[in-house]
């Protein structure tokens, strides 16, 4: 919610149209990917460079889908029944499914998730529009404050989702490496710093596991 509000403002200040950013909320439905898309395209990267960065960042959706779908399956569930549910899966829905689905009878969970997903998308579309409109009409002081919501909320929600040493290291190294790598002006700076920092973080995790084994 808070990040999506900032995404509308970010899109406005990066010169995207309102329809475009609403389309991105509906179709992309993943805050980090939207921000990567808007900020890479806005800073002059080509569509191919943006697509590569978004594709790599979106890999994290794979484990989310894998872990949440078993909560909804019944012996009668067909794969096509789960297509829309799968589209709705992003960080917010993933967290809410773990919290809410145990209270819902199993055979009704797909319908429940469809309702939850539609509701979340609707609220986020309104928030996107509000953020966009506010960035367009507010004095610079408040417009700056709305733009700060995105990095601030993402930093803190990522920090809260850190479960292992590798997650914490990836966050810290990723923040520290980007300013250095951005000096190279490769167009895929985010990708290079992300894969490097993530792999170092994983390496430390691997080395520690091995040390304890």
């Amino acid at each position: 919610m808070r990040p999506i509000f900032g995404i509308g403002a970010l899109a406005h200040d990066s010169h995207f149209s309102l329809g475009w950013v609403l389309g991105s909320t509906l179709l992309v439905w993943a805050g980090p990917a939207q921000i990567i898309l808007i900020s890479t395209l806005g800073s002059g990267a080509t569509a191919v460079q943006a697509a590569i960065a978004v594709t790599v960042s979106a890999i994290r959706l794979f484990p989310m889908v894998v872990s949440v779908l078993p909560l909804m399956k019944t012996p009668k569930t067909r794969r096509r029944h789960l297509v829309l549910v799968t589209h709705f899966i992003a960080v917010t829905l993933w967290v809410e499914c773990y919290r809410l689905l145990p209270k819902v009878p199993r055979e009704r969970r797909i319908a429940f998730t469809h309702g939850l997903g539609c509701g979340l998308v609707s609220v986020c579309m309104v928030a996107t529009t509000l953020g966009y409109g506010l960035a367009a009409n507010l004095p610079p002081l408040f417009a700056a404050a709305i733009l700060l919501l995105t990095p601030l909320a993402f930093l803190l929600s990522t920090a809260r989702n850190c479960r292992q040493i590798s997650d914490v290291l990836a966050l810290v190294l990723g923040l520290a490496l980007f300013p250095l790598i951005s000096m190279l002006h490769t167009g895929v700076d985010i990708l290079i710093s992300g894969v490097t920092a993530g792999t170092i973080a994983y390496g430390v995790h691997w080395w520690r596991e091995r040390g304890h084994a």
């Binding site: 403002a9 970010l10 406005h12 200040d13 990066s14 980090p32 921000i35 990567i36 900020s39 806005g42 800073s43 960065a53 790599v56 960042s57 890999i59 994290r60 794979f62 484990p63 960035a135 610079p140 417009a143 700056a144 733009l147 700060l148 995105t150 990095p151 993402f154 930093l155 990522t158 850190c162 292992q164 590798s166 997650d167 290291l169 990836a170 966050l171 810290v172 190294l173 990723g174 923040l175 520290a176 490496l177 980007f178 300013p179 951005s182 700076d189 985010i190 990708l191 710093s193 992300g194 894969v195 490097t196 920092a197 993530g198 792999t199 973080a201 994983y202 995790h205």
Partner: peptide, 29 residues
């Protein structure tokens, strides 16, 4: 675990980008 670490680091890079190369009104801060 590696996928999650890379995804986290990419997101960290995006956060850093907005702070280091701020868009629009944020550049005035």
């Amino acid at each position: 675990i590696w996928v999650r670490a890379v995804a986290t680091a990419i997101l960290a890079g995006v956060i850093a980008q907005i702070l280091v190369q701020p868009p629009g009104a944020l550049a005035g801060v």
